[in-house]
């Protein structure tokens, strides 16, 4: 029930705080009340017609970088938050 679906903002919000987003090829109006910082082009998590949060592309890249690093010998036990992500951030 707490499902959040990634969507891309495609219009500026109207007077009611609603903007159009694209969710897997379909457009829908969602409320941007909870993400006042969101801009057109940002990805947001949508739940029950509301954008809950802006998805951080930077952190997504960092998590993926961690997975990549885990493939290397000797890095299996790295602490995720201590990994140096300078190359990807």
């Amino acid at each position: 029930m707490c499902l959040g679906i990634p969507a891309k903002i495609i219009t500026e919000p109207n007077d009611n705080g609603m903007a159009e987003v694209e969710i897997m090829g379909v457009t829908r109006w969602v409320s941007l009340h909870m993400v006042p910082q969101a801009k057109v082009g940002d990805h947001v998590l949508v739940h029950a017609g509301f954008a809950l949060e802006v998805i951080s592309d930077e952190f997504a890249a960092e998590t993926l970088e961690l997975f990549r690093q885990m493939g290397m010998p000797g890095t299996e036990n790295l602490e995720p938050m201590e990994v140096d992500f300078g190359a990807t951030a």
């Binding site: 809950l52 951080s56 952190f59 960092e62 998590t63």
Partner: peptide, 16 residues
């Protein structure tokens, strides 16, 4: 700890 860093910040969403 937070593994889901792309959508969760330690302080949460203050507006919400």
């Amino acid at each position: 700890e937070i593994a889901y860093t792309r959508a969760v910040m330690p302080q949460g969403n203050r507006v919400a």
